[in-house]
Amino acid sequence: MPLTGTAEGPVWRRRTSGRQWAIWSAWLAGTALFVACWQVISASTTWFFVTDSPRVIADIGSRMVPPAWGYLGKLWEPMWDTINIATLGTLLAIVMAVPVAFLAARNTTPSALVVRPIALLIIVSSRSINSLIWALLLVSIMGPGVLAGIIAIALRSIGFIAKLLYEAIEEIDRSQVEAVTAAGAGRGQVMAYGIVPQIMPAFAGIAVFRWDINIRESTVLGLVGAGGIGLQLQSSLNILAWPQVTVILLLIVATVLVSEWVSATVRHKII
């Protein structure tokens, strides 16, 4: 009871004293845990390597410049592959994620007891496995190449797109759906007129955002053999060709910047 009457008048405090003590002890426990963890990590670190690292950074840094600009000519094709992996993977994911989202949303699912849990399971399993792991699996199943990359990106993106989309579907204004239903519309028409226009901005935003993320993710897929610029990065690293690595990293940064600009522009236009 924060409000208490005293001789000088009522006194108000934000919390009861019991609650205040509980909060203080939680902070104390947190601090103690942090110190304990610090100790464990410190004990298991080889400090020689850590103290040595500035010298190593300087060494690698000096080898990385000047960038081997001539190598750029060999990178356009793998970069184009990378962009294609991201784009096709995103499109494939959208095609699969939209129905999953409608099955998972509480207000559109045909059965909350059977279908919804299945849809949620699809979403969770797709989201919990990183696209690099999907790519590892797929490369061993269908061999190295761009196709494995596309499918890896798609599988990872289904969960992301479906989750955000079904949340958007659950947040729609119900009265618009009611109005369309009251006019005598069938199930499909209620979706097309009552729901789709409401989720369109969210959908466009999610799709472009995921494409933007996928550009970044697909740059590393090559490391496990799933095609794209990562393959080049891998081989340059293997032969310690640091000037080539610099060019690759700069190209990736440039591509990501462009994709981010595209996605921001599209989202701005649609919403």
Partner: peptide, 14 residues
């Protein structure tokens, strides 16, 4: 049966 709503219930983006 035509229905008219309090908050209009128009499909806002159409």
């Amino acid at each position: 049966m035509g229905m008219i709503f309090q908050e209009y219930a128009l499909v806002e983006r159409l």
